[in-house]
Design a protein around this nucleic acid. Structure first.
Length: 412
DNA sequence: TGAGGTGCTTCGCTTCTATA
DNA sequence: TATAGAAGCGAAGCACCTCA
C-alpha cells in the first residue's frame, strides 16, 4: 500500500477495483489510483455513481472473515475491495464522530472536556464588568463585587454549559469549572478561601440541582426518571434517594427524549419493522440503520427503566447482532468510534505484544508451538503492515492467555 | 462512613397589580 | 404617580436517605 503512494509506483499497480454496495444494488467502480483520503474516495463515488446523499463507508475486511469494518484510513482498503455505503440522515459532515448529531438528542453531542473547562461568553455587560474587574485586580489585587443579576448570569451560563455535557457532573468536575472560572477571571477569586473558588463550586452545585429540577418540570427524561419519589405529600412512594439513575462513565447520551413527533407506540412499530427486516435474506441495511437511529431513545428507556437481560434485549433488537449496528450503537451512546478506539489502543501495544508472543513462542510446549506457527505465517507474509501485525496479535492473545478459541477469527 | 441527590423550605429580591 | 401587598423566581439550606 505504501508503494502505491510513492511516485515510483506505476499507475497500473495503484489501480483499484471496488464493488460498491448500496441499499438496492451493487456497482463496479474502477479507480486509476488510490484516493488520497476516505473523504476523497467518498467524493469520487458521489461523482461517478451520481449519489446525492451524505454517507460513510464500510469495507469487507479480509482480516476478519470479510466482516464489515468502518473505513477510516484509506490505506486499510485492499486494492480489490467491497465497500458498503452507509447513508447518514443529516446533511452535515461525513465525519464518523458526528453520526450522533442526527440522532434523538441534539443537546448532548459532546463528552466532558478532558482539559480545561471552556468558560462561556457571558452577557455583554457582565463581560465588560469582568474586563474592568480583571484590570483592577491586576493593578491593585482587589476583587470584583458582583450584583445579583451578574452572578445569576454567570451561574446560569456555566450551569447550562455543564448541562450540555452532562446532567450530573461530579464534585471534581464542578470544582474544575469553578477553578477555570477564576483562572480566566481572576477578579472573581474569593479572598477568604484557600483555593479562591470554593464558594463558586458550592454555588454551581446548587445551580445544577436547581437546573435539574427545572429540566425535570419541563419533561427532560434523563432527570425526570429520578423524580416522583417519596415526599411529605407522597409518603407511600419509594425513598427519594433510592436507585438514582445516572450515566456511567463514557455514556454521553444516557436517556434521550423521543424524537419530535414520536412516542413509545410509534417507535415500537418501527422496532417491529427492524425485527422483520433483519430476518430477511436480502436485508435493507440502510433502512435498518435509519430505523435503529430513530429508535435509539426507545432502547435507552428500555435499558434504563427495564434493566432487561442481554439475551432478552437482543431478542427485542436483533439488529444489534450485526457488527456495523453494534458499532453505530456504541457511537450513539458514547460519541466514540469503537473500532477506531480499539485499533488505536491496539496499535500502541503492538510492538510490546509482538515481543511477548515471540518470547513465549521460543519456549517449548503446546502454547509455544501454536504461537510459533502463528508467527511463522506472519513472517512468511510478503507485506508486514499494521494489518498483519494486528491479526497476528489478536489471534495470538487467546493462545497466550489459554483462553477458549471463540472461533470469531476463523482459522489462521 | 461520607459524598451526594431528592423534595421541601426559607430568604431575599424583582415584577406586577390594585388602590389611594 | 406613589405605594403597599401579592406573586414569582432563584439561590441557598436542611433533613433524609442511598450507595460506593
Amino acid at each position: 500500500m505504501e508503494a502505491c503512494k510513492s511516485t515510483s509506483a506505476s499507475a497500473e499497480s495503484c489501480a483499484m477495483i471496488l464493488r460498491v454496495v448500496e441499499a438496492d444494488r451493487a456497482r463496479k467502480v474502477k479507480l486509476s489510483a488510490r484516493p488520497a483520503s476516505v473523504s476523497a474516495l467518498i467524493q469520487i463515488l458521489k461523482d461517478q455513481l451520481q449519489l446525492d446523499l451524505e454517507f460513510s463507508l464500510q469495507y469487507e475486511d479480509p482480516d476478519f472473515n470479510n466482516q464489515l469494518t468502518s473505513l477510516d484510513d484509506i490505506n486499510e482498503l485492499p486494492q480489490k475491495a467491497v465497500v458498503h455505503i452507509l447513508p447518514m440522515e443529516s446533511d452535515g459532515s461525513t465525519s464518523s464522530t458526528e453520526i450522533l448529531s442526527d440522532v434523538s438528542n441534539p443537546e448532548r453531542a459532546k463528552m466532558w472536556p478532558r482539559g480545561d473547562f471552556p468558560i462561556p461568553q457571558f452577557s455583554y455587560d457582565v463581560e465588560l464588568r469582568l474586563r474592568q474587574g480583571n484590570d483592577e485586580f491586576e493593578k491593585s489585587g482587589k476583587g470584583l463585587k458582583l450584583t445579583r443579576d451578574q452572578k445569576h448570569d454567570i451561574l446560569e451560563k456555566l450551569g447550562s454549559t455543564m448541562y450540555d455535557f452532562k446532567a450530573y457532573p461530579d464534585d471534581k468536575q464542578i470544582g474544575k469549572v469553578a477553578e477555570a472560572l477564576v483562572t480566566k477571571h481572576p477578579c472573581l477569586k474569593e479572598p477568604g478561601s484557600d483555593t479562591g473558588w470554593n464558594g463558586w463550586k458550592i454555588s454551581l452545585k446548587f445551580k445544577m440541582g436547581n437546573l435539574r429540577n427545572k429540566m425535570r418540570k419541563i419533561g427532560c427524561l434523563e432527570v425526570a426518571v429520578n423524580a416522583g419519589k417519596r415526599s411529605q405529600s407522597r409518603p407511600e412512594n419509594e425513598p427519594s434517594h433510592s436507585k438514582i439513575k445516572k450515566p456511567r462513565r463514557s455514556e454521553v447520551n444516557y436517556l434521550p427524549n423521543f424524537p419530535q413527533g414520536e412516542d413509545e407506540a410509534s417507535l415500537e412499530t418501527v422496532r417491529q419493522e427492524i425485527a422483520v427486516e433483519v430476518q430477511k435474506t436480502e436485508k435493507n441495511t440502510s433502512l435498518i440503520h435509519k430505523n435503529m437511529e430513530k429508535t435509539f431513545a426507545l432502547r435507552r428507556q428500555n435499558i434504563v427503566r427495564g434493566s432487561p437481560s442481554v439475551n432478552e434485549f437482543l431478542n427485542l433488537w436483533p439488529a444489534l447482532r450485526v457488527t456495523s449496528e453494534l458499532f453505530a450503537e456504541y457511537q450513539r451512546v458514547t460519541n466514540e468510534n469503537l473500532p477506531n478506539k480499539f485499533y488505536a489502543q491496539l496499535d500502541c501495544l503492538l510492538p510490546r505484544l509482538m515481543t511477548i508472543l515471540r518470547q513465549k513462542a521460543s519456549k517449548t510446549g503446546k502454547t509455544a508451538d501454536t504461537l510459533a506457527n502463528l508467527l511463522k505465517v506472519h513472517d512468511e507474509q510478503e507485506l508486514h503492515d499494521v494489518n498483519s501485525r494486528r491479526t497476528t496479535v489478536i489471534r495470538g492473545l487467546p493462545v497466550l492467555l489459554r483462553d477458549k478459541d471463540l472461533g470469531f477469527l476463523g482459522p489462521p
